[in-house]
Write a protein that binds this DNA or RNA. Structure first.
Length: 261
DNA sequence: TCGCTTGTTGATGG
DNA sequence: GCCATCAACAAGCG
């Protein structure tokens, strides 16, 4: 689930519920989500600190405080929940932050593929995010052209490579390529000017729509709304969709609208 | 039991 | 160096 639009939704939760609040307590229900920090270390670092800002880069959420910063990555099944402290615990609540207004922020994650990191200061945040490409929401057509230039890999592999462009996952990439009418296996350096333009337009359009609702849109006229149907059809041409393994992931595409290379 | 899953990383081979 | 593929991580589902 969590791709750029989902994480942007969690960022809003963090901003709305957390900014200006003090962290009164940190409860680690499952240390399995902590990365390079112990439960005690996390608690000591954050207890009594005030949350100052909620930032996002790609799929990373950054909670800045008047002390260290917290970096959260939601993997495939994670989410951030804001709720009253007396709400019954959920079995997948891995870390709970008590705020000074009687509410809590909860890092909830079924699988524990990613998790939570601590960064001492701004430089440490930058180091942890150093391998990330620019955030997809900040990239315009010219910027995308620069990022794609000279790359021979399949275009879906490039779009979902976080070190090239941060924020796009499997569903978003398929949605964008379907909208741009480009086959996901096309070589990136084989796209002509018009195709690159369509790709940039589709990316911005899909991201804008998705961020507005906080997840990849499942509107009727989207690939995402149909990709998991028993016999999925293309909402544009009505033909059958295909599912193949492309760039290592299950990929939905339309053989009519997105001619294979 | 096996295969599959919206994420990331590292090994391996071309 | 670039690129594709695969395994691993973890947990649940059919």
């Amino acid at each position: 689930m969590p791709e750029l639009p989902d994480v942007e939704g969690y960022r809003r939760i963090l901003a709305d519920e957390g900014e200006g609040r003090r962290v009164d307590e940190v409860r680690v229900a499952d240390p399995g989500v902590l990365r390079e920090v112990t439960p005690g270390g996390l608690r000591r670092a954050l207890r009594g600190r005030r949350i100052e800002a909620a930032d996002r880069h790609g799929k990373w959420l950054v909670a800045r405080t008047d002390g260290p910063a917290l970096l959260l990555h939601f993997g495939m099944t994670g989410r951030l929940v804001g709720c009253p402290a007396d709400e019954p615990p959920h079995r997948h609540d891995r870390v709970v932050f008590d705020l000074d207004d009687g509410r809590q922020l909860r890092f909830r994650d079924q699988r524990k593929l990613q998790g939570i990191r601590l960064a001492r200061d701004r430089a440490a945040v930058d180091r942890l995010l150093a391998g990330q490409g620019p955030d997809a929401l900040s990239v315009d057509a010219a910027g995308l052209d620069r990022l794609l230039a000279g790359r021979r890999a399949g275009v879906k592999a490039v779009l979902t490579d976080q070190s090239v462009l941060a924020g796009l996952g499997n569903l978003l990439a398929d949605e964008i390529l379907w909208r741009a009418r480009i086959h996901p296996s096309r070589r990136t350096d084989g796209l002509d000017r018009a195709e690159r333009r369509r790709l940039a337009d589709a990316m911005r359009r899909v991201l804008r729509d998705s961020v507005r609702v906080g997840h990849v849109p499942a509107r009727r006229a989207s690939l995402t709304a149909h990709r998991d149907d028993a016999e999925p059809t293309c909402p544009r041409c009505g033909g059958p969709l295909r599912r193949d393994r492309i760039a290592g992931r299950t990929t939905a595409w339309c053989p009519h609208c997105q001619p294979p290379p």
